[in-house]
Design a protein around this nucleic acid. Structure first.
Lengths: 297, 297
DNA sequence: CCATATACCTGACTTTAGTCAAGCAATCCG
DNA sequence: CGGATTGCTTGACTAAAGTCAGGTATATGG
């Protein structure tokens, strides 16, 4: 039965991904090299930082620079230094570039419509629903979890979002207090989850030798909630804690974070007495770590 | 609401198609050029005719030939003339090529599993179901309908399948009688539906000036049934008949072709008295054609 | 048997894509 | 203020993809 599922995924990858992908490229290319067309599209009406384009398109810095130069030469974009930081450069569409982008936008609409057009109404609705489902579930697989210094931009973005959200949800606001710069080896660690470059979640671990490990700053972007990312982050943090020699992991949380409490309970955590005086904490949880070097499944 | 559906399709195309597609390519490439890897994969354990590879991969004849020469030079495939026709050449995997193919097969399994792995059981099932749905419905859109001489290989394949199926379904067998070589302009036409090069359906139209047009040889491959292709073929034939000046289109059919009868009834056909003495016909249908040069949505 | 068509191959390109090291300007850090 | 770092650009490549005009066997139809 696992075999059947794998076959389904493989067939899907082959047929849908390659064929529709090729179709998409063909439509959007407009007798311009594919990389240029994609780049022009990604710059978009709002403009974009070059670093962002690089991660989104997965291009080499040199290659990207050259592509930008070509588009600039064709009068489709301008590249200027960012106002804040002179090293950062920002690409903007010129009016000619905008016109071209609009054409791509229209073609993209037409392609989408050409897919829907031969279908009956009910088929169209079913297709859209199935596409949304596939997309959401694939997201979960494409999220990458990696170690990240809390000071890195991706981490800071997550922590800002985390703080903003808690401030909104807690009755009496939220002040994160001191920074999270201690969440680096050897006294801790910080994980950031990214979806094609964009940070979509995070989690920290504080490690004090001889004491239980502590999970902190677990946050998942609303855009990917309900896909099990929180559970995945917590599981990874537990694994790291075990690797570091901890045999217990604990954390504090607040009543208003109902999904989090639900997650911890269903992940094997049980409530314990307060182990700190965090003014925002209302519940304290702990989970014993069982060491196993042979990971099952 | 049409707009929402189009947006869904566009988002799907972008995220799923590009990201999963790139992932797929990366896995399967095995530090061999992508085109070579894909070609090796397409040759497969059963071997393949070069013409088939060309259409399946959408490659230029020269480019393909060179790729074949490279794989041949690496000892992965052999290319020999086909037994029937000395011009046609067939690629076969050598044992080394077969071993390489097996590796690709395994990697493909691993990639599929890496997508499923982070998901819960119920999510996996839902993903597989949604993928199957997307795939089937996209098929309908990717089917291309084109004019085709009844003597062309694609047409002959359809007509053979048509004949075989009727012979099986009719109580007293089926003999197509004379060929369908009259289904060419100006006395008629023949359409073949292809799904990425493979013929999956057909339909013919006989045109006699001053007489009603006649629909013949409508067939849809079992692999794509239930996706509205039959209806699409009939609709296109009606359009062609109208373009040719006919104001009525008629056809004959047999009791055992229940889906066809259902299709004709729901497409606006009504039963009429026998207009010919086709020994296999049990029902005769007709539909008046309304001319409209402004085709609505 | 000969003209024509088919199916593929070769040579001789051009265009894209992608890599790597070196370099420069802006910024950050102590 | 001076040395490191960051962010991007350039030069100098290589590899892969794709194109196009011949060319060579094999088949087909009169």
């Amino acid at each position: 039965m696992g075999e059947r599922l794998v076959d389904t995924v493989r067939r899907f990858n082959r047929t849908v991904t390659q064929r529709v992908g090729a179709l998409d490229d063909g439509y959007l290319t407009r007798d311009r090299p594919l990389a240029q067309a994609r780049l022009l599209w990604e710059v978009g009406p709002a403009g974009a930082e070059i670093a962002a384009l690089r991660t989104r398109l997965g291009l080499d810095a040199g290659h990207l620079s050259r592509l930008l130069r070509t588009l600039e030469g064709d009068g489709l974009i301008t590249v200027n230094s960012a106002p804040g930081d002179g090293r950062v450069r920002v690409a903007q569409l010129t009016s000619a570039g905008r016109a071209e982008w609009d054409v791509l936008d229209r073609l993209s609409d037409e392609l989408a419509w050409s897919i829907l057009e031969p279908l009956s109404d009910s088929q169209r609705t079913r297709l859209a629903a199935a596409m949304t489902e596939v997309e959401r579930l694939l997201m979960a697989s494409l999220v990458e979890l990696r170690d990240c210094h809390p000071g890195e931009p991706a981490a800071r973005a997550c922590l800002r979002a985390y703080t903003r959200e808690l401030a909104q949800r807690f009755e009496d606001g939220f002040d994160p207090g001191v920074g999270d710069d201690d969440l680096v080896p050897p006294t801790g660690l910080f994980l950031v989850a990214t979806l094609s470059g964009e940070p979509v979640g995070c989690g920290g671990l504080r490690l004090v030798p001889g004491e239980p490990a502590e999970i902190k700053r677990v946050w998942v972007s609303p855009s990917v909630r309900g896909l099990g990312l929180g559970r995945r982050i917590v599981r990874e943090l537990e694994r790291r804690a075990a690797d570091a020699g901890a045999d217990l992991v604990r954390l504090d949380t607040n009543d208003s974070l109902t999904e989090a409490i639900q997650l911890y309970r269903s992940s094997g955590y049980h409530e314990i007495p307060a182990y700190n005086d965090n003014p925002y904490a209302r519940h304290w949880f702990a989970k014993p770590l069982i060491k196993d070097d042979a990971s099952g499944r």
